Amino acid sequence: MKYLEKYAITNELAKKMINAAEQKAKELGIAVNITVVDDGGNVVSFSRMDHAPLLSVGISQNKAYTAIAFGKPTSEWYPMIKDEPALLNGIVHTPKLVIFGGGFPIKVDGKIIGGIGVSGGSAEQDELCCEAALKRIE
């Protein structure tokens, strides 16, 4: 019998990533919500900075989920569907799907171990916070 071996994101790594994202948010002068999930979409760690928008809590979680569910940054969705009216108008009603920037898969050796979602700034600012967090992967 063969067993599947896989990497898993640890709580310790998730917290380091959140700290890096928070630092970037402070540099940008914004307050954000940051969610790190495992490869099954389960929350590993979450942080809501002081004064971060309340509605962005769920958006950050959904960005992280979308990133692991499809293995691509959330910013890649809109360009893929913008010229497909049926898809554009239909898929946006899919629960937890986010089609704008701020969610990235977390990969090690090409394998998805989790996802990160940031929400509270512009899509570009949220992505900058994610990118700062992803630099913590060793």
Rank of each mutant, 00 (worst) to 15 (best):
M1N: 08
M1F: 00
K2L: 13
L4Q: 15
Y7G: 13
A8H: 15
I9A: 09
T10I: 02
N11L: 15
N11G: 13
E12M: 07
E12K: 14
E12Y: 08
A14Q: 09
K15N: 14
K16A: 02
M17G: 06
Q23W: 14
K24D: 11
K24Q: 15
K26G: 12
K26W: 12
K26N: 15
K26H: 14
E27C: 07
E27S: 12
L28G: 05
I30C: 09
A31V: 05
N33T: 01
I34M: 09
T35I: 10
V37C: 01
D38V: 06
D39R: 13
G40W: 03
G41T: 01
N42D: 12
V44H: 05
S45K: 13
S45F: 06
S45V: 02
S45Y: 01
F46I: 11
F46M: 00
S47M: 13
S47G: 03
M49Y: 13
M49F: 12
M49I: 04
D50R: 11
D50M: 09
H51E: 14
A52Q: 09
P53M: 14
L54F: 15
S56R: 10
V57C: 07
G58R: 13
I59W: 07
I59R: 10
Q61L: 07
N62S: 11
A64V: 07
A64T: 10
Y65P: 09
Y65L: 05
A67L: 01
A67R: 10
A67V: 06
I68S: 05
A69N: 12
A69R: 11
F70V: 06
G71P: 06
G71I: 09
P73L: 01
P73R: 12
T74E: 07
T74F: 00
E76N: 15
E76V: 05
W77V: 02
Y78E: 13
M80G: 01
K82E: 10
D83T: 12
E84P: 00
E84M: 15
P85Q: 02
P85I: 08
A86E: 15
L88S: 07
L88H: 04
N89M: 10
N89I: 01
G90R: 06
I91P: 10
V92R: 02
P95W: 03
V98S: 04
F100E: 06
F100Q: 10
F100L: 14
F100D: 11
G101V: 02
G103D: 02
F104D: 08
P105N: 08
V108Q: 03
D109T: 07
G110Y: 05
G110P: 04
I112C: 02
I112P: 02
G114F: 05
G115Q: 06
G115H: 04
I116L: 11
G117S: 08
G117M: 08
G117V: 11
V118D: 01
V118A: 11
V118R: 06
S119C: 06
E124V: 13
Q125I: 06
L128S: 08
C129S: 00
E131G: 04
A132D: 02
A132P: 03
A133W: 05
A133F: 09
L134D: 03
K135I: 03
K135T: 01
E138D: 13
